[in-house]
Structures are given as C-alpha cells and as structure tokens.
C-alpha cells in the first residue's frame, strides 16, 4: 500500500509545499489540504494515514505562536484528531506545527494509555535572544525514544527558523517525567562533545542552543511515539545541496535517494511511511 499524507495548509502555514515533497520522495502520496476543508467536513481526516502540520506563521504568531490555529483545531477538529491518534496514525508538527500541537495539547499529551484530552501541558515561547533567527544547529536523538519518526537516528545538522522555540514546562518534575518516558526525542547538542548516550540537561549557551529551551529540548513525542513535534526543520535538509557546507570537499555522498545526494532529514519521513506500511493490515 502507499501511505496517503494530509499536509495541512492555510492561515499562514508556509512550509506546505516542501513538506508535501519530502513525503513523496520517500514513497508516499501527499496532498495539501486547507484547514477549513477539515473544519467544514468537506474532507474527512480518517481517509489519510499520516497528518503533517508544517511550519509557518499561522495567524502571524499573534497571541503566541500556534495559539489561534491550535484553537481552531482544538474546537473544530477535536473528534477527528482524537480518532486519528487512537487509530495509531502518525502525526508530525514541524516548527509552527510543533507549536500548534503543543498548544492543542496533543504534545506531550496525557499519560500512556489515555486518549488525547486537549489539555496544554507545555509551551513554546520567545527565544532568550528575543530574535527570530535562521541558523543551523546540531541535534541529538534519544535512541530509546518510542518515537516512530526518529528510529535509527543519532545526530544530524538542521536549520532552525523561529522566534518562539524555547520549550518550557511548569515544573522540573514535569520534565523529569517526560525524560523518564523517553519522550524527549531530540535535543540541541554541542557538536564537539560526545555524551555517550547521556542527555545534556544544562542549558547550552547561545547559539548552540538557539533559544534557551529547558534541558535543550528541540522536540518531543507523545507517550505512543506516534505524535512527534520539533522546532528544527528536517524537511529543509531533504537534499545534501541544501547543507551549507556542500561545496566543501569533505561533503560525501549519502542515502539512497537523489543519486547519493539525499539529505539527513529525509529519514524522518521515510520512518513514518515505513511504519504505516509495516503496520498496515490490508
């Protein structure tokens, strides 16, 4: 079977074209679907196998990034989203999409075994620098995370492009619980260090951590590992020619797609497509 992906767009989402493209590069079919087509019932979410909420500036980030689009989904797509998650279908939110998933309460979500309750438990707020910036960072993935999107991934370089990427939770124990469940899927890391699998919890200096996130958190998943969100943009590293050092002689062929010019980010999307294929009962 060929997994079918809904890539949400409208109201200022702006990474919809490339997000659609990366799913197609790894063998899915993908469609840009305007939010209102789900809201009006014109299109049904359950006809899709994967939902992607791309990056952008929904509603201009006014009243807090992701808040207003999150509200539209929380109030108008509540049942559809709950059934989608309960059916074990993967969801990814990238950048503004991550902010939306956090503010709808889908991330980090309730305890294991419970249906989505749409209660916000964390937030993403203004970078410590006070500035929106586009810069490349190094990410480290938790190999023990249940996240189906990041299987087999260790480190990658990736751009961040945000002004509100600082991940926060109310208390240290909230963060402890998230870590204990290995829901802290991906963190910013100093590329010159080797942590040997340990997580670095001391907030790294700017710009190694571009935003001052608590415990250097760049992305998290829900308890099932199916819903995943992150501030960096893996879709923007789909090809090696998008890497800032690709003109350097040290840049080497990689991956199976694009004649050895596959970028490191593509694996994330391939993982989800493979997961859907593997779990599909048809």
């Amino acid at each position: 079977m060929t997994p079918h992906v809904a890539v949400l767009f409208g109201f200022g989402i702006n990474c919809d074209h490339e997000t659609k493209a990366v799913f197609e590069l790894v063998g899915a079919t993908a469609e840009r679907v305007h939010v209102n087509r789900f809201v009006t019932g014109d299109v049904s979410l359950d006809t899709y196998d994967i939902l992607a909420v791309p990056g952008g500036f929904s509603f201009g980030d006014h009243l807090g990034s992701g808040r207003l689009l999150g509200n539209r989904m929380r109030f108008a797509m509540r049942d559809a989203l709950r059934s989608f998650v309960d059916a074990g279908k993967p969801i990814i939110g990238i950048c503004n999409g991550f902010q939306v998933l956090v503010k709808t309460g889908l991330l980090p979500g309730p305890d294991a075994g419970e249906s989505p309750d749409f209660i916000q438990r964390a937030s993403l707020t203004l970078n410590d620098s006070g500035r929106y910036e586009d810069r490349w960072v190094t990410l480290e993935f938790d190999p023990e995370s249940p996240c189906i999107w990041t299987k087999g991934m260790t480190r990658m370089e990736c751009p961040v492009r945000h002004g509100e990427g600082k991940f926060v939770m109310p208390t240290a124990s909230d963060l402890d619980r998230l870590e204990a469940n290995h829901q802290v899927t991906v963190r910013y890391v100093d590329p010159s260090t080797n942590l040997g699998g340990r997580a670095n919890e001391t907030v790294l200096p700017y710009p190694t951590s571009p935003n001052g996130s608590m415990r250097n958190i760049a992305g998290i998943c829900d308890s099932t590992g199916l819903v995943f969100g992150l501030m960096p943009h893996p879709e923007a590293v789909y090809a090696r020619w998008l890497h800032p050092n690709h003109t350097h002689p040290s840049s080497q062929p990689s991956g199976e797609a694009l004649d050895g010019w596959e970028g490191e980010g593509l694996q994330i999307f391939r993982n989800a497509v493979d997961h859907v294929k593997a779990t599909h009962r048809g």
Binding site: N14, C15, H17, E18, A21, V22, G55, R131, Y132, E133, D134, R135, W136, P159, R161, H233, E235, A236, Y238, W241, L242, P244, N245, H246, T247, H248
Partner: peptide
C-alpha cells in the same frame, strides 16, 4: 540578515552565509 528566513521552501543551495562557521 540572519533574522530573515533564507531557507523556507527548502530550495536555497547557496545561502547568505557560507563557510565552516557559516
């Protein structure tokens, strides 16, 4: 210039900043 998004659309092959420290 870093405060401009220069990479949205995932197409920018030579960016405003280059080199080892970008």
């Amino acid at each position: 210039v870093r405060q401009y998004d220069h990479e949205v659309i995932a197409q920018t092959a030579v960016k405003p900043f280059v080199g080892v420290e970008r």
